[in-house]
Design a binder for these strands. Structure first.
Lengths: 144, 144
DNA sequence: CCATATAATTAGCCGGGCTAACCATTAGCC
DNA sequence: GGCTAATGGTTAGCCCGGCTAATTATATGG
């Protein structure tokens, strides 16, 4: 094994830190979905998907995604629909309520992050943005 | 509310993505602790703490931390000890097994991240590192 | 037309989050 | 000294989110 890059070590250190802080903020607000639900709504807001695709993209097993979707359906945030071209598949769609919830939570989280980032200079913000772009591209390529 | 910075939007988008990918990798390996346990071990590896401090730093409630520590104790990774100066407090210490586990997991996760980052150029790695430094400093200051 | 593969659900388990209620200890104050 | 907080932890009871194994429904292919 090659020596780990400083960047990798930093990813391991910083990402969980940020994640916990955001998770804490979400838990503090009532009626906020869990981070997992948030991620599902966010994915579905761009395009509807069937369960399997959703599970794969979200890096969880199919039963787990089925359960999460059931919870979301109970809360009225998404809806199940049989696919016409293949009646085995279930397509998940975000409801209006789900879209509203997503916007609320997105605003809340972004506002919180903005609050945390408020102490940074414009130069630091640029650095942050560039760094995250790199990280995103790395984890979006196959294998990430 | 001011317009959200692009940096904040990117944080919201990228951090959960990376977190899920790392979580998936951890779940795939047997005998790997959950991300939460990993975080606890990591914190304790530098300094022993009592339960309350641990809960606060980890952004969870005291009962939650007590439960997590119980699980870790059952697995032999940490040990509880009454503080001599204040017998109400419980100090948590990492066992040798815990330290070994932490090293194993750290190596595993860092290796995985390195693998994902392998496609990046040195310049991109530098950008990533700088960006994460900024992010870390923002979330480590009070309020983060 | 039957066998197999694929999509999804259900059941059963565990970890991790919470609040409320409780016990043990310390600190403060008359 | 001896009450009365205040502080630190644990326990109980709840829910969500992970997993695997087993089941059902639909497609597909020989």
């Amino acid at each position: 094994m090659n020596a780990p890059t400083p960047a990798a070590q930093q990813v391991v250190q910083v990402i969980p830190l940020v994640m916990r802080a955001i998770g804490k903020r979400l838990r503090q607000k009532n009626d906020m979905p869990s981070p997992a639900h948030f991620g599902i709504l966010f994915m579905l807001s761009n395009e509807t998907m069937n369960l399997s695709d959703l599970a794969r993209q979200h890096s969880v097993s199919l039963p787990t995604m089925s359960n999460s979707v059931s919870t979301l359906v109970q809360h009225g945030l998404v809806a199940r629909r049989r696919a016409a071209h293949d009646r085995r598949q279930v397509v998940i769609e975000v409801t209006d309520a789900g879209r509203a919830m997503l916007k609320t939570v997105l605003d809340e989280v972004v506002a919180y992050v903005d609050e945390v980032l408020a102490s940074l200079s414009q130069g630091e913000l640029d650095q942050l943005q560039k760094g995250l772009s790199v990280l995103k591209s790395a984890f979006l390529t196959p294998g990430g």
